[in-house]
C-alpha cells in the first residue's frame, strides 16, 4: 500500500514537471523587445518602433528639416494611410517621430492648421486672438512641410509557410514649392506558419 502511494506521488511529480514548460505565466517584457510576440499576418509593435526609428534616422541624416524657412521647421502631420489588413493606429508611428522632433527642438508641429485641425480649440483661440488684436500682431502658423504616408503589405505563401512584407513610406512635401523634399521607406518581412514568441 505504502509502495503504491509512493509510486503515485512520484508519477504526479513527474507529470507536473513535464507540464511546467508548456505553462507560461504572464510577465512584463520590455516594449519593442525581440522577446515579444511575432505575428506573420499583422504589424507588431516592434515593427512600428523600427519604422519610426528608421524614419527619424533618415530625417536626421539628410538634414532636410534644417532647410526650412522657420527655425525650427514647422510641420503639418497629414494623412498616413494604413493599406494593410492589420488593424493599428498609424499615429503610433507619427507620434513617436513627433516626440523626438519636437522635444529635441528640430521641428514643431502645427496643430491648428487647415479645415480639419488636430486641435480645434487651439485654432479657435488663435483666430479669436488674431481678430481681437488685428491682422499684424500674431500671424497664423506658416508651416514649412507636410508629412504624409502610406503603409502597404505584400503577402505570399508556399505550402503552409506564409510571408508578409510591410512597407512604411513617408513623404515630406515642401509647402513653399509643392515639391517632395524627403521620402523614406522602411520594410519589414516576416515568414512562418504561425505566430511565435520572439527570442
Amino acid at each position: 500500500m505504502r509502495i503504491r502511494t509512493a509510486s503515485i506521488a512520484v508519477l504526479a511529480s513527474l507529470a507536473a514537471f513535464l507540464a511546467a514548460p508548456g505553462c507560461e505565466r504572464a510577465r512584463y517584457v520590455e516594449t519593442g523587445s525581440p522577446e515579444g510576440i511575432i505575428s506573420v499576418n499583422d504589424v507588431d509593435f516592434q515593427d512600428i518602433l523600427k519604422a519610426s526609428s528608421g524614419m527619424l534616422e533618415s530625417l536626421g541624416q539628410t538634414g532636410v528639416l534644417k532647410t526650412a524657412k522657420n527655425k525650427p521647421a514647422q510641420l503639418i502631420i497629414g494623412d498616413v494611410v494604413n493599406d494593410t489588413s492589420s488593424r493599428f493606429d498609424v499615429g503610433e508611428v507619427t507620434y513617436r517621430m513627433r516626440e523626438q522632433l519636437v522635444n529635441s527642438g528640430q521641428a514643431t508641429v502645427v496643430t491648428t492648421f487647415g479645415t480639419t485641425p488636430e486641435d480645434k480649440q487651439a485654432q479657435e483661440v488663435l483666430r479669436r486672438e488674431k481678430f481681437l488684436k488685428g491682422e499684424t500682431v500674431e500671424p497664423l502658423p506658416d508651416p514649412d512641410f507636410s508629412l504624409t504616408g502610406k503603409i502597404t503589405q505584400v503577402k505570399r505563401s508556399a505550402g503552409g509557410t506564409k510571408q508578409a512584407t510591410y512597407t512604411f513610406r513617408l513623404t515630406l512635401t515642401n509647402l513653399r514649392t509643392g515639391l517632395e523634399a524627403w521620402t523614406k521607406t522602411v520594410d519589414m518581412t516576416k515568414m512562418g506558419n504561425k505566430n511565435a514568441v520572439g527570442f
Partner: peptide, 9 residues
Amino acid sequence: ESQTSVWKS
C-alpha cells in the same frame, strides 16, 4: 533618450 534606440533583428 531617443525613439531611434530600439531593438532591431
